[in-house]
């Protein structure tokens, strides 16, 4: 499996799996074009870059989501065919991060804002709550799977 760590972005144009392991407050956005058979994922840590320079464009929702779409299109995916699903954004500990408060919730909102702005329709999500998740996109079958430590596997 192609493992997408925090702040990373990966795109695959051949059968295989792409996944983000151990999402807490992070949100992973998976995109899949079933015709071009191109899939990709970004592992977002924070909602907004606020102009910060970074080596990891996937770290922020406002930089990572558009960048993933760009990479998808470069590999032959078309926006009107792309299926988008997201997972993550849990609140594991009752602590606030910086000025963001409940960071998981803010990440979910920020990712959705980006998808809206890019004209992409969200077709599935497994977000919020207080459980960590692993999110896997399987290009061979076009399935999006969420795994948690305590409640097992489910497809979204």
């Amino acid at each position: 499996m192609l493992n997408v760590g925090i702040g990373e972005i990966a795109v695959l144009d051949k059968p295989g799996k792409i996944g983000a392991i151990g999402l807490g407050s992070c949100v992973a956005v998976a995109m899949y074009d079933p015709i071009a058979k191109v899939g990709g994922m970004v592992h977002v840590l924070l909602p907004d870059s606020r102009g910060q320079k970074t080596e990891l464009p996937g770290k922020f929702a406002n930089t990572g989501v558009p960048y993933l779409l760009k990479l998808m299109e470069q590999k032959g995916a078309r926006k009107d065919r792309i299926i988008v699903k997201i997972a993550g954004g849990a609140s594991l500990m009752n602590v606030s991060v910086g000025n963001f408060g409940d960071i998981g919730k803010r990440n979910i909102e920020a990712v959705k804002e980006q998808l809206n702005a890019l004209g992409l329709r969200l077709q599935g999500e497994d977000t919020g709550g207080n459980e960590g998740r692993t999110f896997i996109l399987d290009l061979a079958t076009g399935t999006f799977t969420v795994k948690t430590a305590r409640s097992g596997l489910r497809q979204i």
């Binding site: 925090i6 392991i21 151990g22 999402l23 807490g24 407050s25 992070c26 840590l45 924070l46 849990a90 594991l92 500990m93 602590v95 991060v97 910086g98 963001f100 960071i103 459980e131 960590g132 998740r133 692993t134 430590a149």
Partner: peptide
């Protein structure tokens, strides 16, 4: 929870 998930709090900071 999962190691990666609990680390998110710290890494987000």
């Amino acid at each position: 929870d999962m190691l990666g998930a609990v680390l998110n709090v710290l890494l987000a900071e």
